[in-house]
């Protein structure tokens, strides 16, 4: 029971972090059709900016400053990069972000070095929040979840209660119509791109010290956020939310399951070679999301809650 509860919380925390990362990407992807390969780089920049800010100003200012800086960079990328290549089609846009991810990583190497930086959890949050029987649960994870949920609520209110939000929502499902109605779609795009980058940056601020802030952190989450977006479905924030939690839970719980391929084959009375038979679900845990994504795309390319295919 204790194990189950701890894993549930771990899965929830990981899922919420994934949602922070992917919510911005979903917005960008659905509205602009851009598979933003640099999105995870914004997450990394958020972490590094937060590291630098917390050295100069402290963690709390960094929580605000770092995402804003990332938003600024996102806006610049949209204005001077994506908008320039927009006329050449989605492949060019995608490749631009692809190249950008390379360059951002190399610049991070130059500015902050190649090894991990010492970005630690602030003292004020470095304590045990509560105990589940014998396991302690750190306060910082609770804080992470709180930030994610606050962000989720903020996003929901922003999209449903403000004028810009309504335009964005409309652009998610009917981009042509919104343009036809005379809205400045490019500006909305820039705004959404900046906001998406800021969300990734915020995820970086709180994820960077919970995990490790190093130049490989973007590549490490780079493809998993695509899985979330694709799995959740185009144009659906709710889909992304459910997909994030699902993938967080799947990854967390499969670690605890020691059933192997051999056991599975045994059920059908089949004999398979030892090297395959010994592979447990736990060993495969981080591969499962990709398997899920491929299956989803083949069976139902709209994704879980998607409204359209591309």
């Amino acid at each position: 029971m204790e194990f189950f509860l701890v894993q549930l919380l771990n899965g929830l925390a990981y899922g919420l972090l994934l949602f922070m990362l992917s919510s911005g990407l979903t917005l960008i992807f659905s509205m602009m059709g851009v598979l933003n390969f640099a999105h995870a780089s914004f997450y990394m920049l958020g972490a590094y900016f937060a590291y630098q800010c917390s050295k100069w100003l402290g963690f709390w200012p960094a929580l605000v400053v770092a995402p804003l800086l990332v938003a600024g960079i996102g806006a610049l990328v949209e204005r001077f990069g994506l908008r320039t290549v927009h006329k050449f089609g989605h492949v060019a846009e995608l490749l631009l972000t692809f190249g950008l991810a390379y360059v951002i990583e190399e610049i991070v190497h130059l500015v902050w070095g190649r090894a991990a930086v010492d970005y630690q959890i602030p003292e004020a949050l470095n304590f045990t929040a509560f105990h589940i029987l014998t396991s302690s649960y750190p306060a910082y994870r609770v804080f992470m979840m709180a930030i994610s949920i606050a962000m989720l609520i903020g996003l929901y209110l922003g999209l449903t209660r403000t004028r810009v939000g309504l335009v964005i929502q409309a652009s998610l499902t009917h981009p042509e119509m919104v343009e036809a109605l005379g809205h400045n779609v490019p500006r909305v795009f820039m705004l959404v791109f900046a906001a998406g980058a800021a969300l990734a940056g915020l995820a970086g601020v709180i994820g960077g010290n919970a995990f490790v802030t190093e130049p490989g952190m973007a590549a490490a989450v780079g493809s998993i956020v695509f899985v979330v977006v694709v799995f959740g479905g185009m144009g659906s924030l709710l889909g992304a939310f459910i997909a994030s939690l699902l993938i967080g839970m799947v990854q967390t719980f499969s670690v605890g399951i020691d059933y192997s391929i051999g056991d599975l084959a045994g059920l059908f009375g089949a004999q398979i070679p030892e090297q395959f038979a010994s592979i447990t679900l736990a060993r495969m845990a981080p591969m499962l999301p990709y398997l899920l994504m491929v299956m989803m795309l083949v069976m139902r390319p709209k994704g879980l809650m998607g409204t359209r295919e591309t």
Binding site: M287, M293, V298, T310
Partner: peptide, 24 residues
């Protein structure tokens, strides 16, 4: 499997298969 879809889903399937083979 990959060519069941075109466009972006194709790209994503090829990415997923690439990740799976690399991990395997």
């Amino acid at each position: 499997i990959t060519t069941k879809r075109s466009g972006t889903p194709f790209a994503m399937i090829s990415l997923g298969i690439g990740e799976l083979v690399a991990a395997g």
